[in-house]
Amino acid sequence: MIHQSSQEVTPNLNLQMTQKKICTLGTSSVGKSSLVARFVKGIFSDSYLTTIGVKIDKKTVSNRGKKVDLLIWDLNGEDRFQKLSMNYLRGTAGYILVVDGTRRNTLDAAISLHHKTQAAIGTVPFVVLINKSDLKDEWEVEEADIADLQARGWTILQTSAKSGTGVEKAFTHLANKLT
């Protein structure tokens, strides 16, 4: 079942020229699936269900005045229990690195995943989302950490899948960077 913002279904998606595949990457429990659910369906659920493999959703966005179908590959979180299959990354036009602001080590994991991704598919646009901004009082990721990454030229955005803050902006920002 595909969740679409547009009801139009084309005969064969393979032939569409305006499709862009993006992936969400990060360690487990940082909120990747929740961000996708918030962006695609506008919903948030407190019940947490771990992702196995990949789940693909689709949403049409506007990119520099043109409609683009974003195929959002929500990949399983990589941690000591489950590794990420690099095969999923083939054909990725851009990716979102998701960090849980309340756990500093998820930032290290995201940086490590960024390096692995770059080694696998080369340089493509990406953004870093520091998620769970609704729990900012409990954040371990500090302004200095964010400033360090921004100094590397990275785009860092703060989001909350729970409240929806910054989510639309984050996906749209990446979509606009896609070539």
Partner: peptide, 15 residues
């Protein structure tokens, strides 16, 4: 029919 239109992962697997 085109299953890849519904099961999007298949389009990736076809390659």
């Amino acid at each position: 029919w085109h299953p890849g239109n519904y099961l999007l992962y298949l389009a990736h697997f076809y390659e």
